[in-house]
Design a protein around this nucleic acid. Structure first.
Length: 482
DNA sequence: CTAGGGTTAG
């Protein structure tokens, strides 16, 4: 029988390590059988939970379930892949006699990114009870868990453990801590930590910059970005997205444009996230045409992209455009979220579109199943107040599921001043003073309203109240002074 | 065999 020599085309189809053997005469007559896939690596190749369950079953049958490596792979596939099942992974985990630190880290990571991040902390406590020592792969996820439920206290507690195990200079751990502190509204501590890191990398710079940007400290974000480039770091996509957001909110169109140029020069691809950041930056800065062009040229858009465009249009008084974009969004089957409605309602507010706004506000709950937040109520109160519907606005506030805050009451107070309605204003002032007894501003507003209608005796009464309030703040005040 | 940073309101 004639056996054809392997030609280059045939060799090219095989992995390189086989081609070497095939050329040697000992292997020549028969190509080697393909390696049977290793059970332990099979878990990585699964694309469905069902397949993972089969692998699990095979492992039980062949008693590979005692193989630490194989179980680790199975565990991490079950808990971390996007088709995975956290509860299944936790069941596997609870059946492992003595999980090693890798396994603990894996389930902690899965819980931290899941719907109940606080459970990651419970896992950590159990891990410590059985005496497993946490490592530099444990803390980043533990801190992520804390920042996912915005708990400053647990951040601090985990921080003490980081110090105890001497991991505070590990860059991943330090990065996590900076992020954790800035997400739990503690920028000062985040910055303190950031400054103490002797050798910072790009990720840590980015974390700190985005911390400022997300907490609406745009100027600090831009200052830090300048400092970063001075120290010779080149920004990547994550950095640029945060910086663009800071440019958008602080009105730095020039810096934003420079960054756009930089992206073009470096050939950085404008994906959804950077595209959205750019649309927001241009639209917030009034360059509506450029924003619109960019928006239309994007290949992929998500809800944030639509929101950025709608809110930008609304902020610049293009109410009709914002509303028609909202209609287009519906036609393209993009599901709006709570931010979308803030944009749409504020557009109605700017244009004074009372009926449209009312309809949209009611449709939030009835059509989209989105429970209005206090910000949405705020838009509606603004809109009603602007059109002189003070009593309806008052009713709306009374019907809120939460107690009214000073912001929303203040907005209606301003509206009642514009409508010269002292009756409503008096009621509102009473409510605001119940919340903030030392709020002088409302006395001033009310007294000005009385003055406009010539009710001088009321003005004098309020001035007396204000004087008492002022004196109360001084040490050793007495009624004799009045 | 594991890890970090990103977009939308105010």
């Amino acid at each position: 029988m004639f056996i054809r020599e392997p030609d280059s085309a045939w060799l090219g189809m095989l992995p390189p390590k086989f081609s070497k053997h095939l050329l040697s005469p000992a292997f020549f007559p028969r190509p080697p059988p393909p390696n049977p896939p290793k059970l332990s690596l099979l878990a990585d190749r699964c694309a469905f939970m069902k397949q993972l369950q089969q692998v699990h079953a095979q492992m039980v049958v062949s008693s590979r379930i005692n193989d630490e490596f194989a179980v680790s792979r199975l565990l991490s596939s079950c808990s971390l892949s996007n088709f995975g099942d956290l509860n299944y992974a936790l069941r596997i985990f609870s059946n492992i006699q003595q999980p090693n630190s890798f396994m603990w880290n894996t389930v902690i990571r899965a819980q931290a990114c899941g719907p109940n991040p606080h459970k990651a902390l419970f896992l950590y406590i159990r891990m410590r009870r059985v005496g497993v020592v946490p490592g530099r792969h444990t803390f980043p996820f533990l801190i992520k868990a804390c920042s996912n439920f915005r708990s400053l206290q647990s951040c601090k507690q985990v921080h003490t453990h980081v110090l105890k195990f001497g991991l505070d200079l590990d860059l991943h751990v330090a990065n996590g801590l900076v992020r954790g502190y800035s997400l739990s509204n503690n920028l000062a501590d985040a910055r303190l930590l950031f400054d103490e890191i002797p050798e910072r990398n790009l990720s840590i710079w980015t974390t700190m910059i985005s911390g400022y940007a997300q907490n609406l400290c745009s100027n600090e974000a831009l200052v830090l970005f300048n400092q970063m480039t001075k120290e010779g770091f080149e920004p990547n996509e994550a950095t640029l997205a945060s910086v663009l957001s800071a440019c958008a909110r602080s009105g730095c169109l020039e810096t934003g444009e420079r960054i756009h140029q930089f992206m073009k020069k470096k050939g950085i691809e404008v994906g959804v996230i950077l595209g959205t950041a750019l649309v927001y930056m241009y639209s917030k800065n009034g360059a509506i045409t450029r924003a619109q062009e960019l928006f239309d040229s994007m290949h992929e858009r998500n809800i944030a992209t639509w929101n950025a465009m709608i809110c930008g249009l609304a902020a610049h008084g293009h109410a009709e455009d914002a509303l028609s974009l909202f209609q287009r969004e519906k036609k393209e089957n993009v599901v709006p979220n709570d931010v979308t409605f803030i944009g749409v309602l504020s557009a109605c507010c700017h244009a004074g579109l009372l009926d449209v706004g009312r309809d949209i506000f009611h449709s939030m709950r009835t059509v989209y199943g989105i429970e209005p937040k206090i910000e949405h109520y705020g838009c509606m109160v603004d809109l009603l107040g602007r059109r002189g519907k003070l009593l309806e606005a008052e009713e709306l506030i009374k019907g809120m599921p939460w107690k009214a805050d000073v912001v929303i009451l203040g907005a209606l107070l301003a509206a009642s001043k514009n409508n010269a309605n002292t009756e409503v204003a008096e009621r509102l002032v009473k409510q605001i003073l119940a919340l903030e007894p030392h709020n002088h501003g409302v006395h001033v507003v009310l007294s000005n309203m009385y003055a406009e209608t010539g009710r001088w005796e009321e003005v004098l009464r309020l001035r007396k109240v204000m004087k008492v309030e002022r004196l109360k703040k001084e040490p050793g005040w007495s009624l004799v002074d009045i």
